[in-house]
Design a protein around this nucleic acid. Structure first.
Lengths: 220, 220
DNA sequence: GTCTATATACTGATAGAC
DNA sequence: GTCTATCAGTATATAGAC
């Protein structure tokens, strides 16, 4: 909301001090969490003194809130963009695959805001989280709407509670920030495994039907 | 490891002060997390003064470590017990269902240690987590061994990396501590949805085969 | 065993010089 | 805009009386 003057919309590279503070905050929050990140940590990483931060932000929680909101917003924007770019007649399955892959990939590449968002969400003070909830709810409702489309098409079971499914789906991906290490696992392999698990399940369909279970989601 | 004298193994009900401190610690850590839980919070809930805690524990981190270990150990014990009690010829699918359901249920019932464990894991100081890792690794390896059995039986794909699958499976369940509220969702419905999602996938098998997708895991 | 009192350190935040 | 200096609050942990 607060924006330094004469800045274009959503600057990709941090130029001013305020953006630099936000960027390093996201990076440090991502690895140290909320409570263990001090204004001094942020200041040092930004190359200023901690008192100077208060020229741009009223409090530590104001920084947290902005990092939280930016994380969700960037995630939302990327997912919607990739979905909107799909061909009109694309199957629900492919649509969901793209959404899941985008969410997962953004969690582990392209900046620290999305990963910091996942970590900060349970750790941040309740008032901050409460204010952030409206942004997060929009994103969740977007997924639920997509799932309802899938139900209408008959691609997924009518009886499912789309809210629970949404929480389970994104939960599987979100939890990966706790264990995924770029040097230890291959991002594409993990993404493919996760998407395959969520779309087709772990158990092989050992019926006569040649259903290609656990053998999909290998595009991109 | 440290145990007050003349105590039987794994006391179910906390009698002594030490056990009471541990129990309230687990409860408070579960809801407030690591950093926001103070020795004073614990002391007050245990009905003593904060200085008295140091008669039983050298430091806050010693409490955290014990809560962390107990959480994983209880989870491990419950899952193994339920698996061992199964009939010899039971299918891999049923086995996995029982394991998943046990893990999920224990996360949300029967004490705060298991839920606190999930929350503390990313928040606790690295040295504490590092010491806890051997316990956690045993539990992960137990799951991976189970998955390998499934591969040997042909129940799940041979090509899957069992470590990644294990992390994805438990991640789906673990993440639920962030959103599951007993008053808002039904535990059995969420468990059934989660297990169905993980075993059979979200997408309907719209082949001719009468494969009962998303229609299982409703025992227990 | 549990207490009171306190040491020590560090936190988020403010005041005001430059 | 960024600094130095500092306040007030609170944290973990210790010392020692009872």
């Amino acid at each position: 909301m607060t924006k330094s003057p004469s800045q274009p919309d959503t600057p990709t590279v941090a130029t001013g001090t305020r953006e630099r503070v936000l960027d390093v905050s996201a990076r440090i929050f991502r690895s140290r969490g909320y409570a263990d990140t001090t204004m001094n940590h942020i200041a040092k990483a930004a190359g200023i003194k901690s008192a100077s931060i208060y020229y741009y932000f009223k409090s530590k929680d104001e920084i947290v809130e902005e990092v939280l909101n930016l994380g969700t917003q960037r995630m939302f924007k990327a997912v919607r963009q990739n979905i909107d770019n799909l061909a009109p007649g694309v199957s629900f399955r492919d649509k969901l695959t793209v959404a899941l892959r985008t969410h997962f990939t953004l969690l582990h590449t392209q900046g620290d805001y999305t990963a910091a968002n996942i970590r900060l969400f349970p750790e941040a003070p309740p008032p901050v989280v409460k204010r952030h909830m409206c942004v997060r709810r929009s994103y969740g409702l977007y997924w639920q709407a997509m799932l309802k489309e899938g139900q209408a098409e008959g691609a997924i079971a009518d009886t499912l509670d789309v809210e629970i499914v949404q929480l389970l789906l994104l939960g599987t991906l979100n939890w990966s920030v706790q264990w995924y290490k770029p040097k230890l696992y291959d991002l594409n392999e993990v993404a493919a495994s996760g998407i395959s698990l969520l779309l087709d399940g772990l158990i092989q369909a050992d019926e006569i039907s040649g259903n290609p279970v656990s053998q999909d989601a290998k595009d991109a």
